[in-house]
Design a protein around this nucleic acid. Sequence first.
RNA 1: GCGCCCGUAGCUCAGCCGGAUAGAGCACCAGAUUCCUAAUCUGGGGGCCAUGGGUUCGAAUCCCGUCGGGCGCACCA
Length: 581
Amino acid sequence: MSKTQTLYAAFTGHLHAALDALEAAGTLPAGLKRGAITVEPPRDTAHGDLSTNAAMVLAKPAGLKPRDLAEALVAELSKLDSVTSAEIAGPGFINLRLSPAAWLAELRTIADLGADYGRSVMGGGTTVNIEYVSANPTGPMHMGHCRGAVVGDALASLLEFAGHKVIREYYVNDAGGQVQVLARSAHLRYREALGEDVGAIPEGLYPGDYLVPVGQSLAAEFGDRYAAAPESEWLALFQKKAVAAMLVMIREDLALLGIHHDLFSSEAELQASGKPDEAEAWLRARDLVYDGVLEAPKGKTLDDWEAVELPLFRSTRFGDDQDRPIKKSDGTWTYFGADLAYHFQKARNADALVDIWGADHAGTVKRIKAAVAAMTGADGDATPFEIKLVQMVQLLRNGEPVKMSKRSGNFVTLAEVVTEVGKDVVRFTMLTRKPEAQMDFDFAKVVEASKDNPVFYVQYANARVHSTLRKGAEAGFAPSGDNVELLGEEELELVKLAAQFPRIVEAAASAREAHRIAFFLGDLAAAFHGYWNLGNDRVDKRFINVADGKLTEARLFLAAQIGQLVRNGLALLGVEAVEEM
RNA sequence: GCGCCCGUAGCUCAGCCGGAUAGAGCACCAGAUUCCUAAUCUGGGGGCCAUGGGUUCGAAUCCCGUCGGGCGCACCA
């Protein structure tokens, strides 16, 4: 890590040093919690450059009046060279103004740190396991999986950038009924590949064509050995083969989006390893699993409902609405029973867990959170565990909904969409809305080349930087950070925005919200284009000003650093920065 | 019936672990425009932050109720 410090980090440091000084002088009691103190730009720029709530936060625990404490802090902070004014405002905010030189120096910091500008040590090297995608291995990925995949992957990159170690994990649901259906569907395709006329795919099996090559390869490998054999002879084998084939396909689909997980964890292997049994025994020993009978579901009539005694996890103790079975009446594990053991395993290898789920699984959030709390919280120090629910994406084509239904096999695959509009468009667009809000994805709009399209707008900013630097070079000018103080008021505004990036990264990482990066890039691009447009009417505001070489070089330096910042942000989102459009 | 998510400008959405006068784009209105790179630019109007209460120095933000939209409510995954 470079010693170069970004402006906000430096000021946070200055503030704490000032508080230390007040403690040393006896003005402030030692040991007050400072966690709630913020250093941020005031909402209204008329109030200054930086604002801190320190005096308001600390006044009560210190037994001081906010204004008195603020005055003492102002006295300390005023000693800094870079501070041109420090004022108390409102209920006790401290507003600081910094010298232009202090801001403009941030451009050199961006240049020094380059691709590492914005990288943070906030995470302290702790390990975060982020589980995302985890689509059932029963077919290719479709658009329903896409948003969670992108959101999870961008979040993983963001957390790494913010100083965490990250494990990108995919849970493979290769046990249970659905993969048996997959095996039977593959068997049908296998018979078909052997020349049998299988007719229409029966109800209840997967009809998709993607199983045709699986059948062919099974036929090539096994001949007609299992064509007429009873299911018991081939089910497990075909299941394994078919799942493996599906995972190859899924990995290819993910690769199209630039997504590569560190770990694929198999539910079947987890079960075979006895982990769920261990978890059950551990929970039973603490009376957190008992044998009981569930009530019939309310508000819904099930004709085949019957009361059966099952091993139940006491999730109600941890806020769930009812206790949840971990095993079925046939003795096999429920999805939840295995998932519980799986999360326990993940928790042992990480300091914090994040799951990215589709909103259709919202109903199971409480039970798994309960399980993690129960299993990791025994010593009073539960593993932090967050579930991010990603809402549905409605696919549109020129405003008309695109129909899809997985059952009929007539769904829009991720591969089709990526092929049509491109990886970068898909990824960026998925991050232009907060994940918990529903979203429309219109094939026509996302590829539009206009300022209404944020993907284009941000890409264009970097392309414009690039062409500007090229033009500059043709005119004989190279970017230089030596004379940044020549830059004026408008350039300063751009730098002030750019300097936000490190704190945006930290805030986005701690909120687990990668979309904030996308929005910041939109703002930055808008500011850059706005600055550019000044040159439309005012020739003196253009980047390249042959009459003033030093100023031109400083402006090119500014452009170069904005480009760097756009690239850093896009890298977090997994979007490539293009140099020409 | 119950749980979760959402409700902010005409539209699409940011802002939400409390902070100062609530933001952006589109649309609308009025101007500018043979411009380094281009997919125009500048300015303006527009808000009971769904709604009713509560918490407090302070609420779009936290809590409770109501209304509206979405998702879900199996021994499925």
